[in-house]
Design a protein around this nucleic acid. Structure first.
Lengths: 341, 341
DNA sequence: CTTCCATGTGTAAGCGGTTACAATTTCCGC
DNA sequence: GCGGAAATTGTAACCGCTTACACATGGAAG
């Protein structure tokens, strides 16, 4: 069982009565001159024969493909799904295909995939939600990215703290700080924080923002006021449990992300507690579902789609000079918070 | 600025003191024999030199790549995100990379991307949430898939109704029928349906399931009891508005999907109506967020992750014989429905 | 000690493009 | 009408890997 007759550039050239080289030029170099009417003739031949360039041959010869590599934590996480949407939108505009892989925050997987993408000569590698701080693989990862960039690839991280490639820097700490200010101004003084794993830079930054925000009002966080969980709905469930079962439960729960906040809301509901009457809850990220939660979630809304778009746009720029785009979130007050009773 | 010294298979061969061909065999054909200890020597050389095969060269020579093409409606839609998660999981297990594209239900885009993926000689093309019925492009799409499959590619549709490739068939009509039965048994007689565009086969099937379910109990749907909207949260909002503003609003709203149901819930909440006291609402699909809605959404839960896994597994099977995997949903009763008052 | 096979290895021809370089043509100004 | 620069085209050498085919080697059988 053989495929349909494959049309090679050679065939087009013959059909148009020119050499392989000329056909190639007419087809893929718009700058090139050429005798009057020749280009049209070649194009016509190509169309007539139904010529379809072989991307692998091209990639091999040119040492670059027309694909983009996107490494995210997990497609199923709305945060990354939304971000990916932005990447894909801009990629499409530039006629680029996106190869997406999920690292599930595993540094070794992340490294493996990055290598693989680099081997595929993707035009750019966009890394979102990576750990960065895993010392075991961090060095290898860095080396890989440097070498990749050296060989003409473009690197973009949606994470500050990488010393190679462009960066879309999300203002995690500033956003949290603003959020905490708002909570304090509402009258809250007793906080519980449901944090994520500390190896994530975003988590550290958000925590730092919380601490700073409290400090601005002369408040501090006790060691017990903060629990570390998995950054998932289940994590939020567990976190809420840990914090609320203490002798003196907090009146305001600050979740490290929207998804974690959902878990917390769910736990509270299951316990028959009312939000925000019994306890206020906040999220971070502003995923689309935050507005549908009941009560709707007060959060710091990041322009996730736009973050993806920015990342993809940076991916198209030359590696040097290095670009760093700052993205800020905006506080969105909704119904999950109220002054403490 | 040149990349780091690239190690070619040639270099490995020289380092190991064998010919290019032998090196190739040792490295990529585990079946091959070879003089005792030779394989180890070649492997050692490759490791020592840090050899990394060029996938494009390989793909060009073998006319097949190690990538999978996944065409979905939209990553940001949790239905497809979840499904994609399943695909990616299985793909990873087989060391395959997934190139994901979003068609946004645009048949022309879908065709364009399919061609592109076929040109890239991806091992398989998985199509989820495609329209199928768009006559303008349907023929071209079909031809493309046939030719792709003919040339060795594997086609999988998560949609019945395609006559080429494997199929993961979701029992849309059966699921809806079961759901409707449950609603009728609860005492409902007055229904409103928020449907999606009729060009989507899944929509037609679900509607058919609704009609059948009603018919089973001697009920029918009036022409006005059904509205057609975009399959999105906004669509659900609009749909709820249309149905509930009628002189005699329905007591039970059947949404064509969970996301649409979310929109409906949101509209109802904004109007100060209580679910399920004033009106019952159901969804379809069972996306993870359905459980977090308030009230939690009664829906037909599809094993979306598993659908993705099934699709990817089928993608690994030879094109013939054709496989058709049936997937059924399960009714999940939650708090968004109650007997009519 | 031949003869014949099975097995291992090397040579070289692709895979389908791009592009440096040489050869040819075209177009000037004198 | 001629010399020479500029523009166009063709030839052929890659890009890095797989694999058909030819050749060499080592035993087992006769």
């Amino acid at each position: 069982m053989v495929g349909q007759p494959l049309v090679r550039l050679q065939d087009v050239a013959e059909h148009a009565g020119v050499s392989l080289a000329t056909a190639s030029r007419m087809l893929s170099d718009p700058e090139y001159g050429g005798r009057a009417g020749l280009r049209e003739r070649v194009l016509a031949s190509a169309a007539e024969l139904g010529y379809r360039p072989n991307p692998h041959a091209r990639a091999l010869a040119m040492a670059t493909s027309t694909n983009i590599g996107l490494v995210i934590h997990d497609v199923r996480d709305p945060y990354f799904a939304t971000l990916s949407g932005g990447v894909i939108t801009v990629a499409e505009r530039h006629d680029l295909l996106v190869s997406m892989v999920c690292s599930y925050r595993d540094a070794s997987r992340e490294l493996e995939y990055t290598k693989r993408l680099a081997d595929q000569r993707v035009r750019a590698i966009i890394l979102a939600g990576s750990s960065v701080r895993d010392s075991a693989h961090a060095a290898a990862m860095h080396a890989e990215l440097v070498s990749y960039q050296h060989s003409g690839g473009s690197v973009v991280s949606v994470t500050r703290g990488r010393t190679v490639g462009h960066v879309v820097d999300i203002d995690n700490s500033g956003g949290m700080r603003t959020l905490v200010h708002a909570m304090v101004e509402l009258g809250h003084t007793s906080f519980g924080v449901i944090a994520g794993p500390l190896r994530l830079l975003a988590v550290r930054d958000r925590l730092q923002g919380i601490r700073q925000g409290l400090k601005d009002h002369g408040l501090t966080l006790g060691r017990d006021d903060i629990v570390y969980v998995d950054m998932s709905r289940d994590g939020g469930l567990a976190g809420a449990h840990l914090l609320m079962k203490r002798p003196k439960p907090p009146r305001c729960l600050l979740a490290i992300s929207d998804v974690v906040a959902f878990g917390a809301l769910s736990w509270l509901r299951a316990q028959g507690m009312t939000v925000p009457d019994d306890v206020s809850v906040t999220g971070f990220g502003g995923i689309p579902a935050a507005i549908d939660a009941v009560p709707s979630l007060t959060t710091v809304e990041l322009p996730l789609e736009q973050v993806g778009e920015n990342a993809m746009e940076l991916a198209l720029k030359p590696a040097s000079p290095r670009h760093i785009v700052e993205v800020k979130g905006t506080l969105v007050r909704r119904d999950s918070v109220a002054p403490p009773r």
